[in-house]
């Protein structure tokens, strides 16, 4: 028929091409230029990984080493760690400040995340639903804190916090959370924006409202479950920011984890080192977990197995064409 064809497949009996996929053992690639390029690239990547991991690990290892090895004498003991894990006891009153700072920071994590979610989520949903009117404004404001340094912000926050400390609330450190919400805006905005973009918000909301759901129900039962990953991501990032924040606390003379670390370093540097290591490790784990949760998306769909789509009829088909 066609003289060009040098290879035509005639399947088994019934003319259907149903041969199974030939599985050849891993055949060597023929002098592959592409494969060589890929190999070079992988080697380069591995070298870079190795160097980066070394560079990242050395500070951490040093912190641990410092925490167990008394710097001046070289004596190795776990005193610093014992002090930390003893917790808040009367025995090590020198660490009181540290526990205060840690407690404050943890409480502030909570408050900040709550305020952030309550403020940002409804706003972003509302902005997305009511057209593009305020979306650029919100985006701009949310990304602004990236460009206004904390040191600058705190200069302007000083009088505000004076008022808060004396007239509205007390001078407890946890009210720093209000300012922290601003600091976490960029990270939270980006995370939630990505999450909201990925769902068809308008349709979901309209569908729910057309069934008579109240706005609260829509928010809590329709929107939140669909952007859980983004919310977790925003929350974890906010925690990371709050735990690592130093500038505002220091300049507004409040105690948080980082300022406490700073102070404790002056009296017991080994404890400071141990605590720093814990904080760094914890924050990293926080982010890794967040990343795993966020990216549990299904992998790229496997290529369609043609044999499944074009299955030969096992029995005579009585009706229908394709």
């Amino acid at each position: 028929m066609s003289t060009y064809a040098s290879h035509v497949v005639h399947g088994p009996e019934h003319g259907s091409v149903r041969d199974d996929v030939t599985v050849t053992p891993d055949a060597p690639v023929r002098a592959g230029a592409r494969a060589a390029a890929t190999r070079r690239q992988t080697a380069f990547r591995r070298v870079v990984y190795l160097v980066s991991i070394l560079l990242m690990a050395v500070p951490l290892v040093s912190l641990v080493e410092y925490s167990v090895r008394f710097p001046l004498t070289g004596a190795v003991n776990l005193d610093a760690w014992r002090k930390i894990f003893a917790g808040r006891t009367n025995e090590y009153t020198t660490l009181d400040n540290l526990w205060l700072g840690l407690t404050n920071s943890l409480i502030m994590c909570l408050i900040t995340v709550v305020i952030m979610l309550v403020l940002l989520l409804p706003t972003m949903v509302w902005v997305r639903l009511s057209g593009k009117k305020f979306s650029r404004f919100v985006e701009f404001v949310c990304l602004l804190p990236l460009t206004i340094p904390a040191v600058v912000l705190v200069v302007g926050l000083t009088p505000i916090y004076r008022v808060i400390s004396t007239q509205i609330l007390n001078s407890s450190a946890i009210w720093l959370s209000f300012a922290y919400v601003i600091l976490v805006l960029p990270f939270s905005y980006r995370a939630m924006d990505a999450g909201l973009r990925a769902i068809d918000l308008k349709t979901l909301v309209e569908a729910a409202r057309s069934f008579g759901a109240s706005w609260l129900t829509v928010l809590l039962k329709v929107i939140v479950p669909n952007i859980k990953g983004a919310l977790v991501s925003a929350s974890f990032l906010s925690c990371a920011v709050v735990l690592g924040e130093f500038t505002l606390a220091r300049l507004l003379a409040k105690d948080n984890l980082q300022t406490a670390l700073f102070v404790i370093n002056l009296s017991d540097s080994q404890v400071a080192a141990a605590m720093s290591f814990l904080a760094l490790a914890l924050t990293t784990i926080l982010l890794v977990v967040m990343d795993l949760i966020m990216n549990r998306a299904p992998k790229a769909p496997k290529k369609l197995d043609a044999s499944k789509t074009y299955r030969a009829p096992k029995k005579r088909i009585k009706d229908t064409t394709r």
């Binding site: 050395v58 500070p59 951490l60 040093s62 912190l63 080493e65 410092y66 925490s67 690592g244 130093f246 980082q258 670390l261 700073f262 370093n265 540097s269 400071a272 080192a273 720093s276 290591f277 904080a279 760094l280």
Partner: peptide
């Protein structure tokens, strides 16, 4: 920030 500084002191 601060923790990195301490790490460097330890290093």
């Amino acid at each position: 920030g601060v923790m990195l500084a301490f790490a460097f002191i330890a290093m």
